[in-house]
């Protein structure tokens, strides 16, 4: 092939341009820390990165959901524990009253304490966590309401529950895992959920039972009080089964949190593998490019300089 000044200059310029382009590519990688700048630099990896980003978003959100469920379940659990303690005390009092050895003032004191326990259980059932009623299901509460509010001995205590076993507040804690993060007052305190009619319950429930117990204690009806001990046991069973289901949910949430932490780290690492540049490699490449660029400049200076003019007079 014939070589002229023009073709020499042009081809050297072309080569210089190519070198500069490659140099720029590598130095952009090093300065941004990204292996590709726009998806078209590496469509396959860009697509992978989009998948991983979506995954990361979802998992971060699931972690947040799990944390929310964890705090709800923790409060629920400790509240249920307090309820259990109260019921336990009520049982002790009932046992004491059932002995029939107490005089009237002692019976009144026991009955008053049982009334007190009933009120405490009510306010525990109406616990609010971050402004939301814990035991009221989907509703805004209160979970438990008495009518009349402050019953006399000859009153029949009616209890209105809000929320039932259908009001499951689920939290998505993993890609295919949801956990129930609540329990309703009806489930804890009502004997038979089928009797729930539009939230109103006249049939058996812990509160009415305690009210009746206090009335019986005051009246000194030892037989009825003895019978009531069995009812308190039933109430405690219900509470404990609620407690255990909350406990199971809590431990599921904890293990999901643990797992999601690990998964999230793995996803983040994978995303970094897909998106980020291997710095050591890139810097080596940058140096290679620099050497190549300088050599191109050097050879350009040598090739373009001489002509016949330098040698003839």
């Amino acid at each position: 092939m014939r070589v002229t000044q023009d073709s020499l200059v042009q081809s050297t310029l072309n080569r210089l341009q190519t070198r500069l382009n490659e140099h720029q590519d590598v130095s952009t990688k090093v300065s941004t820390g990204k292996a590709w700048q726009v998806p078209s630099d590496d469509p396959a990896r860009a697509n992978q990165s989009l998948v991983l980003r979506a995954d990361e978003h979802a998992r971060t959100q699931q972690q947040r959901n799990a944390q929310d469920a964890e705090s709800r379940l923790e409060i629920t659990d400790s509240t249920l524990q307090s309820m259990n303690d109260r019921l336990h005390r009520a049982r002790d009092l009932a046992v004491q009253a059932a002995k029939g050895t107490s005089d009237e003032s002692e019976r009144t004191a026991i009955a008053d304490e049982i009334d007190e326990i009933r009120e405490e259980l009510k306010s525990l059932a109406n616990t609010r966590h971050a402004g939301k009623a814990l035991f009221a299901g989907y509703t805004d509460g209160p979970a438990v309401a008495f009518s009349p509010e402050d019953p006399e001995d000859d009153d029949e205590l009616e209890v209105a529950f809000k929320g039932d076993d259908g009001h499951q507040i689920d939290r998505k804690i993993g890609p295919n895992e949801t956990v129930r993060s609540n329990v309703t007052a009806a489930e804890v305190f009502a004997a038979d959920l089928d009797d729930l009619d539009d939230g109103e319950l006249n049939a058996e429930n812990t509160f009415s039972m305690l009210h009746d117990l206090a009335v019986d204690v005051r009246a000194g009806d030892v037989d009825k009080v003895s019978d009531a001990i069995g009812d308190i046991d039933d109430a405690q069973d219900r509470l404990q089964s609620a407690q255990s289901s909350v406990g199971v949910a809590h431990s599921r949430v904890l293990s999901a949190l643990d797992r999601s932490e690990r998964d999230l780290l793995a996803v983040q690492k994978e995303r970094s593998d897909v998106e980020d540049v291997n710095l050591a490699e890139a810097i080596m490449e940058l140096q290679t490019q620099e050497v190549a660029f300088e050599s191109t400049l050097g050879s350009m200076a040598r090739v373009l300089q001489p002509s016949l003019m330098d040698f003839i007079r």
Partner: peptide
Amino acid sequence: EARRGEHGVSID
């Protein structure tokens, strides 16, 4: 490049 080589002026 080939055309510049063929058509272009060589000073030498």
